[in-house]
C-alpha cells in the first residue's frame, strides 16, 4: 500500500514543517517514507510544497504523478494541484484563506478553517499543526500521538507550553473533521 501526499501553500505557512512532522511520524510508525521539499528560488518566490510518500514496501519514486491527498493552504495551491490529484483522492483545504471551490467532483473536498481555529487558540502560527491533525484524522495515515512524537523529535528542547499548544491544535483539527463527517 502506497500513499502519496502533497502539502502546499505560501512560504511561511509551515507547509514544509507539516510534511516533515508527518514523515517522521510515519517513519516511527514503522513505515517507509520519502520527503521531497521544493527548495531554493521556488520557495523564495513565495510558494512552498513538499511531497511525502508513505508505503509498507520499498518506495520507488519520491516524485508523485498524481497524489492521493493534497493539503492546500492557499488559493494558488488549489489551482495548481486540483488537476493533478487522483480520482477518489482527498483534498484538504484551508477554508479560512482559500475562497475558490474545487473544480472536481471525483475528489473529496474537506475544508477546515485552520487559520480561524488557530486565532481562537491564540496563535496563528499553529494553523499548520491544526491542518496536520485534521489530515491525520481524515486519512488515518498516522495518529495524533505519533505526530506529537514526530514534532517533539524535530523541535527538540521547545518549552512544554508550546508543545501543549501544538497538541491542542492537532486535537482541534482532528475534532473538526471527525465532527464534520
Amino acid at each position: 500500500m502506497i500513499t502519496e501526499t502533497i502539502f502546499a501553500g505560501f512560504g511561511g505557512q509551515g507547509v514544509l514543517m507539516m510534511g516533515y512532522v508527518f514523515a517522521v511520524s510515519v517513519m516511527r510508525d514503522g513505515m517507509n517514507v520519502t520527503y521531497l521539499p521544493s527548495y531554493g528560488a521556488e520557495v523564495r518566490g513565495g510558494t512552498a510544497n513538499c511531497t511525502v510518500v508513505v508505503s509498507d514496501e520499498e518506495i520507488a519514486s519520491p516524485v508523485s504523478s498524481s497524489p492521493d491527498h493534497v493539503v492546500v493552504m492557499n488559493n494558488p495551491s488549489l489551482l495548481r494541484y486540483q488537476g493533478m490529484i487522483r480520482s477518489g483522492g482527498t483534498m484538504m483545504i484551508n477554508d479560512s484563506l482559500v475562497e475558490a471551490k474545487l473544480a472536481r467532483d471525483d475528489v473529496e473536498e474537506v475544508r477546515v478553517p485552520v487559520t480561524d481555529i488557530a486565532n481562537e487558540l491564540g496563535s496563528p502560527r499553529i494553523a499548520n499543526m491544526i491542518m496536520l491533525g485534521a489530515f491525520a484524522a481524515k486519512t488515518g495515515l498516522t495518529s495524533l500521538n505519533s505526530l506529537m512524537n514526530g514534532l517533539t523529535e524535530i523541535v527538540k528542547g521547545k518549552k512544554a507550553s508550546i508543545m501543549d499548544l501544538n497538541r491542542k491544535g492537532m486535537e482541534q483539527g482532528a475534532r473538526y473533521v471527525t465532527r464534520a463527517s
Partner: peptide
C-alpha cells in the same frame, strides 16, 4: 543532484 541532496529518507 538537487533532488538527492534535498530529499529526506530514513
Amino acid at each position: 543532484d538537487g533532488m538527492m541532496g534535498q530529499m529526506m529518507e530514513p
